[in-house]
């Protein structure tokens, strides 16, 4: 039997992001929802003010055709999810499924690592791509920052990658 005692194993909640070669800070205090519509999404998306594919508003990232992530502070998160239902959409909570990291001064590095153009990381833009072999959502922040969102189960893997990738 394989003895994995020597294995680096930790779930996202135990990973410390301090000291990573690419500076990363976990973002807390938000709830996240994955939003889709069954069938046509244009009307509902419009009603909710959801952005077009590849774009972001302060509270929503369009991560694919008809596919959004909502980010809301705890206070109005439930109301936001309810609005989705009213508009005919489906919202499921993914606050625990995903981890949100804000990467400092990261546009050049991420452009190099992903092959996406720098323009993809302007505030208001978002992209979904592969990094470290997993799916990540990247959203541009002010001052060259980039927000990275991915499955929390891979946190340890990503932590190691940030040290070795550049």
């Amino acid at each position: 039997m394989a003895d994995l005692a020597a294995w680096p194993s930790m779930h996202g909640s135990e990973v410390t992001w301090d000291g990573a070669a690419i500076a990363a800070r976990p973002v807390e205090g938000f709830r996240l929802f994955r939003v889709k519509f069954a069938g046509e999404s244009e009307e509902g998306a419009k009603a909710l003010g959801l952005p077009d594919c590849g774009h972001a508003t302060p509270s929503a990232l369009a991560i694919g055709p008809g596919d959004w992530l909502l980010i809301h502070p705890e206070a109005d998160a439930d109301a936001a999810a309810a609005r989705v239902t009213t508009a005919g959409g489906y919202a499921i909570e993914v606050s625990d499924a995903l981890i949100v990291l804000d990467l400092k001064d990261a546009t050049q590095v991420l452009s190099r690592l992903t092959g996406l153009g720098i323009a993809c990381f302007e505030p208001g833009r978002t992209a979904r791509t592969r990094l470290a072999g997993i799916a990540v959502v990247l959203a541009g922040l002010d001052m060259g920052g980039v927000r990275m969102i991915f499955d929390r189960s891979y946190a340890r893997h990503m932590r190691r990658y940030l040290d070795l990738a550049a």
């Binding site: 039997m1 394989a2 003895d3 994995l4 005692a5 020597a6 294995w7 680096p8």
Partner: peptide, 10 residues
């Protein structure tokens, strides 16, 4: 064959 191998050979 090291214990930290990604795919341990057993």
């Amino acid at each position: 064959y090291s214990p930290s191998a990604r795919f341990p050979v057993i």
